[in-house]
Design a protein around this nucleic acid. Structure first.
Lengths: 340, 340
DNA sequence: TTGAAAGCGATACCAT
DNA sequence: ATGGTATCGCTTTCAA
C-alpha cells in the first residue's frame, strides 16, 4: 500500500462537516445544482479551500456518466502519424481547446478496421469518455461505431458524409489556388505529386484548374504524403526528358522529399522547377528553399471539432479554406521570405 | 438525455444473473481474485461474451483507486513542444509502451512553476491517475509535487537528482563522440551552437574533447534548441572573418536553422563547414545535406520511464547512450547516406 | 468454491 | 434554501 503514509484525501463529507452543512449543499455550491444562500456558499467555499478539497473524478464519472474526457484516435500505422508535423500541430491544438473547456484529452493509436475500431469505442464508453476525435480522413465506418452511442467527429475530411460529423480543410479549393498561382506566374507545365486517384480533391483541383486555363495538365506522380514518396517522385521528375517547370505537392512532407531529390540531381528550385506544397506545417518553413504552401487552419479546425462534439448538435461537416503562404519555392517572392 | 434510445449497458450484475452465479464470482473470474471452478468460469465467460459486457472503468477506478491511466505533462510554452519532432516521437513511444501495459496515456500541457505543477498533480490524483511523466528536463520541483504522493518520472534529464526518478540520454558522451568524430576527420576549428552555459552537458562534452585533443575550442554561439536560434547563429558564423570549419549543434532543430543560414550565405556543407547535430529525429533525415546526428534511443527511454513508474521501484536515474548516425553533413560518408 | 453485503465518493431526487 | 438518502458499478472482506 504505497499510500499508507499519505493522509486520506478530504471528501465531500469532510467539507460538509467543516462547513456545518449537508453533503448535498456542498454539491449544490460546487455544481450549481440548486440555489444556495450567499452565506452558506461562503462557508462551503472556505471549507473547500481550507481542506484543499478536490472532487474525486472517478466517483463523479461513475455517478454522472461523464469522465470529462475526450479521446483522439490516430491511425496505428508503420509510419507514425505524429512524424507528420501537421498532425502533431493539430493534436496540440485539440488538446488546448479541450483543456480550455475543462476536458482532458487522451490520445491513442488504433486500427480503423471496423471491428477493431468498434472495440476501442466500447473501451472508451466503458471509461465514460464524452467524445472521440477520429483522425481517419474519412475511412472510419459509421455503421461500426455509431451503435456504441458515443459522439464522434471525423478529422481530416473533405466533403463530409451524411450523418457523420467531420472537420477538414477545403483541399480542392487550396489545390486550385496553388495551381492558379503557378500558372499565373508563367509556368506552363505544372505536375502533380500525390495520390493517383483522380477523385482525390487536391488531384481534382489541380486538374480542373489546368483545364480552366486551357493548358494540358502535367504528369501525375505517385508521391503519397510521405517524404519517401516525394523523394522517389522527385528523382523521376529530375530524370524526365522533358520535365515540368512547376510541381504542386499534396503535402509538405511530399515536398520535402521532392526537394531532397532535386538537390541530389542539381535541379534548381524555383529556377528550374517551382514548388507549392500543402498543409502549412512548420516543416515547410525551414527547408531550402523555404516552401510556399497552403496552410490548413489547425486552430479553427480543432475548435470546430471539439465544439461539434460537445454541443450535441446534429452531425455536420465543417470545411475551412486553406491559405496560400508564399515563400521562395514558387519563385514569386511575397513580402515574407519565410525566415520570419 | 442523449442515451435514452441506447439500451442500457450490461453490468456485472446482468452477467451474474445470466450465468446463474453471484456478482462476486464474475469479479473473481475476470480479475482472478479467488479460485473459480472451471465449469463456473466457462459459464461466466459465456455470459460476458453474450452480453458484450465491459467492466465500467469509472466504478473500477473509484473502488480500486486506479484509473489505469498515465499522464504525460509537457511544457506549456509559446513554442509548442511537439513542434520538436524529437519530443513528438518520444510521446508516441510512451503511448505505445503504456498501451501495451494496459494503461491509457493522456497528454497535457502545463506550466512547471511549483504551484501550478502541484495543482495539476492534485487534479491528476483526483482522477486516480497512476503516474506522471514530466517532460521538464530536470526543472520540476520535487518538493512541490512529491507531497501529492503520485509516482512521477522526469524526462529528458542528464545526471539525475537524488530522490527523483528520471530518464535521459548521455548528452555529454554524445557530445564527445560528435566532437571526436569531427576532430578525427581533420577539422581543426570546431564551434558549438547551443546553450552558453558551460555546465550544460553537450557544451561541456564538446569543450572537454577539444581540450583532450589539444586544440583550442572554437567559438560558442547561442543557438538554444530552436530552428530560429540556429538560424541566427548560422548567420553569425557565415559572417565571421575566420569562420569555424565544423559545428556541433545541440539539437537537430538548431542544425536545421544553421543549414538554412548557410544556404542563404552560400556556405557549403560539409565542404566549408561540417555539421553534426543531436537527437536523431526524422527531421535530420531529409534536410540538405542530410544531417549526421546523435540519436537518442526514444523507445528504450520510453520503456524505462514507464517501467520505473509502474514497478514501484525506488526513484533512480536511467541514462542511455546516444548513437552516432553518419550522414552527409559531417563530410565523412558512411555506408548510409541517409536516403536509405 | 461461492454468496452476501459493505463501502468507494459523488449526484440528484424528494422532502421539508 | 437545505437535508436525507438511494444509486452509479465494482472490489473485496467475511461467512458459509
Amino acid at each position: 500500500m504505497p499510500t499508507a503514509d499519505r493522509p486520506r484525501k478530504p471528501t465531500r463529507r469532510d467539507v460538509a462537516r467543516l462547513a456545518g452543512v449537508s453533503d448535498a449543499v456542498v454539491s449544490y455550491t460546487l455544481n450549481g445544482g440548486a440555489p444556495v444562500a450567499a452565506d452558506t456558499r461562503r462557508r462551503v467555499l472556505a471549507a473547500v479551500a481550507e481542506l484543499g478539497y478536490r472532487p474525486n473524478q472517478a466517483a463523479r464519472a461513475l455517478r454522472s456518466g461523464s469522465a470529462r474526457t475526450l479521446v483522439l484516435a490516430v491511425p496505428d500505422a508503420q509510419d507514425p502519424v505524429f512524424s507528420n508535423p501537421f498532425f502533431a500541430e493539430f493534436a496540440a491544438a485539440i488538446e488546448s481547446v479541450a483543456r480550455a473547456r475543462g476536458y482532458v484529452l487522451s490520445t491513442t493509436a488504433t486500427t480503423f478496421a471496423p471491428d477493431g475500431l468498434r472495440t476501442r469505442f466500447e473501451e472508451f464508453a466503458a471509461r465514460m469518455v464524452d467524445g472521440v476525435l477520429v483522425l481517419s480522413s474519412g475511412v472510419a465506418d459509421r455503421t461500426a461505431i455509431d451503435p456504441v452511442g458515443l459522439p464522434w467527429v471525423d478529422l481530416n475530411v473533405t466533403g463530409g458524409r451524411p450523418g457523420v460529423a467531420s472537420v477538414g480543410a477545403d483541399l480542392r479549393g487550396g489545390a486550385e489556388q496553388a495551381t492558379e498561382h503557378l500558372l499565373g506566374h508563367g509556368r506552363t507545365r505544372v505536375a502533380f505529386v500525390g495520390q493517383l486517384d483522380t477523385r482525390e480533391p487536391r488531384h481534382a483541383g489541380w486538374r480542373a484548374t489546368c483545364g480552366r486555363w486551357g493548358v494540358p495538365p502535367g504528369r501525375v506522380y505517385d508521391g503519397g504524403y510521405t517524404r519517401e514518396g516525394g523523394y522517389v517522385a522527385g528523382l523521376q521528375i529530375a530524370d524526365e526528358p522533358d520535365p515540368p517547370d512547376a510541381v504542386f505537392a499534396a503535402s509538405d512532407r511530399t515536398a520535402v522529399g521532392l526537394l531532397r531529390a532535386f538537390h541530389e540531381r542539381g535541379v534548381r528550385v524555383p529556377e528550374d522547377v517551382a514548388v507549392v506544397a500543402f498543409d502549412g506545417s512548420w516543416e515547410a518553413e525551414y527547408t531550402w528553399p523555404p516552401l510556399s504552401t497552403l496552410r490548413q487552419p489547425v486552430e479553427s479546425m480543432a475548435e470546430a471539432a471539439v465544439r461539434g462534439l460537445l454541443d450535441g448538435s446534429p452531425p455536420t461537416h465543417h470545411e475551412f479554406p486553406a491559405e496560400l503562404i508564399i515563400r521562395a519555392s514558387c519563385g514569386t517572392h511575397g513580402p515574407d521570405t519565410g525566415a520570419h
